[in-house]
Each structure stands twice: as C-alpha cells, then as structure tokens.
C-alpha cells in the first residue's frame, strides 16, 4: 500500500518563505485526508511543493508503489478554454510523456473515469463551453485518468452545487477505500472534513498546526485559533460529528472604531 511522508518541507517565493517545517507521519493509502487552513495559509503551495513544481528544502517520501509517476495533482485553476472535446481533454492528461498513437487501453481508461465520475454524457461537448462545476469534474477526471496512487486535489468542490459536492466527496472517500489511494483534498468546509475525511492536516501561515485523525485534529479550539471562529462540534442525529458555528471570534481590530464589533 502506498505511503506518503513529508519531512521538514519548505518553499520560498523570491525571498519570502511561504512554507517551512512541514512534516507528517506516514499517510497511508485507503484514506481521504482533508487539508485545512485559512486563505493564504499555503495549501496550494504545499500541493505544488509535494508534486515537485516548487523547489525547496525537505523531502517527500513515497513508498509502496513502483509507479514512475505515483502522484497526480488537480490544481484549483480550471484552466483556459481551448477547442477540445471533453474526451480529448481527459485523454490529453493520460497521454503526456507517451507516444503520439492512442492505444485501446487509453480509451478504456478514459471511459472508466467518465463512468466513475458519471460524466459520460459530456464526452463530446467542447470542454471550453462547460460550466465551472462541470469543468471541475473534468479536472478531477484528468487527475484520475493518470492512475495515481496519491491524489492531490486543490478545492475540488469549490464550483460544485450542494449535491455534487456531496457526490464528489462520497466518491473520493469510496475511491480511496476501494483502490487504496491516498487522496489529499484541500477544503474550506470544515463540516465536510469532519464528515468525509479519515484524517486532517491543518496549516496556517505556511506551518503545520496539526496532522492526525480528523476527530483529534478538528476541534473547537483549533477552529478558534486557526479560523478565528467560535464553534461547537456535536454529533448530528445520525451520530456523525458536525460543526456548529456560533460567531466570529473577537479580534483586537474589531474593538477599534469601525471594527466589526
């Protein structure tokens, strides 16, 4: 089973240190891990550093796979609008680094992913003409079609409607279990992290705040300190933990004239 461990990861843009000292215990396949943090905490940067797009200090250890490209990355950006059918746009992600000829197994893989994400009906549509949510689904398909063992997804639900958000996270949870993938998902909705994620990583200002089982990491104290929100975590009628937001925690700036309080 695949295992990912980060050791003292750091990264800098120009002279600014944007990530430092990011370490985790070994994160094994079969888990959905939520990456949480406020805006500009460094979530996207951490993904880019793990994927190898940003140089920096520290090491990314991957064990338990002999795949030459074990990690796939779905960026937050849905990309520009080229003249490509959805089918071609997904195939394109699979064909990078391969010969120009498309083989039957490549078609089979594209169709498998279209089926898994239930977007087969979009096959012949022009990818540039799709809505933001549909393009996000295509982005997920482009990551999955690379057959990764570790999947990094930067806010994959941000443009989806409520039912699609739940569908997507349920699907990722199931894929992680069935295919023993390690899926790390950057999320802004802490409630979703509580409901769907097996583990959570919290970063703030480029530093790791906590990493471990979701119930241990996502606490009212963490939410107050990192997100500056007073909240309670209580079981819902079906027993799942849920986040109940009470109010924004008071900040020194709020007490000044014109502040929020």
């Amino acid at each position: 089973m695949v295992s990912l461990q980060l050791q003292d990861l750091g990264a800098a843009y120009g002279g600014n240190q944007v990530l430092s000292g990011i370490s985790t215990p070994p994160l094994t396949g079969g888990q959905l891990v939520a990456l949480l943090g406020p805006n500009a905490a460094g979530k996207s940067t951490l993904f880019r550093r793990i994927f190898g797009l940003l140089p920096g200090s520290g090491t990314v250890h991957i064990d338990g796979t002999d795949s030459p490209n074990p990690i796939a990355y779905m960026p937050q950006d849905n990309g520009s609008r080229p003249v490509l059918s959805v089918y071609e746009a997904i195939l394109l992600a699979r064909m990078q680094g391969r010969r120009l000829k498309v083989l039957p197994e490549d078609h089979a893989e594209v169709e498998r992913v279209l089926d898994v994400l239930d977007i087969g009906h979009l096959r012949s549509r022009n990818a540039g003409d799709l809505s933001g949510g549909q393009r996000q689904m295509i982005g997920a398909a482009q990551a999955l079609v690379q057959n990764p063992r570790v999947l990094l997804m930067d806010e994959p639900t941000s443009a989806l409607d409520l039912s699609r958000q739940i569908d997507m996270l349920t699907l990722l949870q199931r894929l992680a279990k069935e295919q023993e993938l390690l899926i790390i998902v950057a999320l802004h909705d802490i409630g979703y992290a509580l409901r769907f994620a097996d583990a959570a990583m919290v970063i703030d200002k480029g530093r790791m705040i906590a990493c471990g089982p979701t119930a241990e990491v996502v606490t009212a104290e963490m939410v107050r300190e990192v997100f500056e929100v007073e909240a309670r975590i209580e079981p819902c009628s079906k027993g799942s933990p849920q986040l109940i937001v009470e109010r924004r925690a008071a900040q020194p700036s709020d007490l000044r004239p014109g502040g929020m309080l």
Partner: peptide, 15 residues
C-alpha cells in the same frame, strides 16, 4: 496541446 489548457493545468499533467 496541454499548454493550451493554461499553465496550471499543463504543469499538473507533468509538462
């Protein structure tokens, strides 16, 4: 071809 999807997408495909 991947470059026409934008830099972020192309990079995520290993370009």
């Amino acid at each position: 071809t991947a470059m026409r999807l934008g830099d972020a997408k192309a990079e995520s495909m290993g370009v």
